[in-house]
């Protein structure tokens, strides 16, 4: 049975408790203290040491419209734990596994930092962690130091949401969902979450909210997302891909093209070398 998240952005108040709870539970370092001036978002994106990230989308009403028309969308992003996970397929060491909760988990002791999962995630989630921030015996290093100087990723490992594998094994709710005061992040059996989410969407639409689910029954090669979202604006507004594609689906074409070219060249070569002078 698959466990995952239903993140309902209409319930999010942007308190970032999820983001902090995640860093605290996983002892991840801060990513730097740079003021971004992009609304209230100063951590920008998911990454090797940021596994929950709250996005802030400001849509201010024009001055001639009522102030009440202003919108401020907030959305807590996380690894999607895809049914067909690009990162998992790409991983040459088998460090990335689908665990008993059907979540996509990186075994830190097996990852060798090849970095192939990084460009293989259609959602730009997973990234390498600099060795400075991960130290095999001690695990993540989190003294007030930040990893913004960590440009040197060689020898590091890949990091992303574990869906609190450790907590789940103890029967605990993932730290982020536990910390969420408004149940914007709902953890549970994905099928049950789907049912709840669909009801929720209907309820909202009945109230005139243009709500829809992202990561459920979208017919794409990535398949359903074990961490799916209820959104009220275009996916791109939240920095989610409108059309994610599972990278491995391109292998067949690639191999074929390579094989044909090689064959052609070999034949040509054979002919040339065998031809008279």
């Amino acid at each position: 049975m698959a466990n995952g998240f239903f993140t309902d952005t209409t319930l999010c108040i942007g308190c970032k408790a999820c983001e902090v709870a995640c860093k605290q539970w996983n002892q991840l370092p801060a990513d730097g203290y740079e003021f971004s001036a992009t609304s209230y978002d100063n951590t920008h994106e998911l990454g090797g040491t940021t596994w929950r990230h709250v996005a802030f989308v400001e849509q201010a009403a024009p001055l001639d419209a009522p102030a009440a028309d202003t919108k401020w969308l907030m959305m807590s992003d996380v690894c999607k734990h895809c049914t067909n996970a690009g990162c998992l397929e790409a991983c040459p060491t088998g460090a990335i596994i689908r665990n008993e909760f059907e979540d996509v988990f990186i075994q830190p002791d097996i990852c060798n930092g090849c970095g192939y999962c990084v460009p293989s995630c259609p959602f730009g989630v997973v990234d390498l962690i600099a060795p400075a921030d991960y130290d095999a015996p001690r695990g993540f290093v989190s003294d007030g130091r930040t990893n913004d100087d960590a440009t040197q990723h060689h020898g590091g490992i890949a990091g992303k949401c574990t869906l609190c594998y450790d907590r789940q094994k103890l029967g605990l709710t993932p730290a982020c969902a536990k910390a969420c005061p408004t149940e914007s992040i709902q953890f549970g059996n994905v099928d049950e979450l789907h049912a709840r989410a669909k009801e929720r969407v209907e309820a909202l639409q009945a109230r005139g909210v243009q709500a829809y689910l992202y990561g459920v029954d979208d017919n794409n090669t990535v398949g359903d997302l074990n961490a799916f979202f209820l959104l009220t604006d275009a996916p791109a507004a939240y920095n989610l891909p409108e059309r994610p594609v599972l990278p491995s689906t391109r292998q067949r074409a690639g191999y074929t093209a390579a094989a044909l070219t090689a064959a052609a060249l070999a034949l040509a070569g054979w002919a040339v070398l065998r031809s008279g002078d």
Partner: peptide
């Protein structure tokens, strides 16, 4: 202000 995880979320007076 002494908790890195919170400091990084609002890193400057604005």
């Amino acid at each position: 202000r002494y908790v890195p995880w919170l400091a990084e979320l609002q890193p400057a007076l604005f």
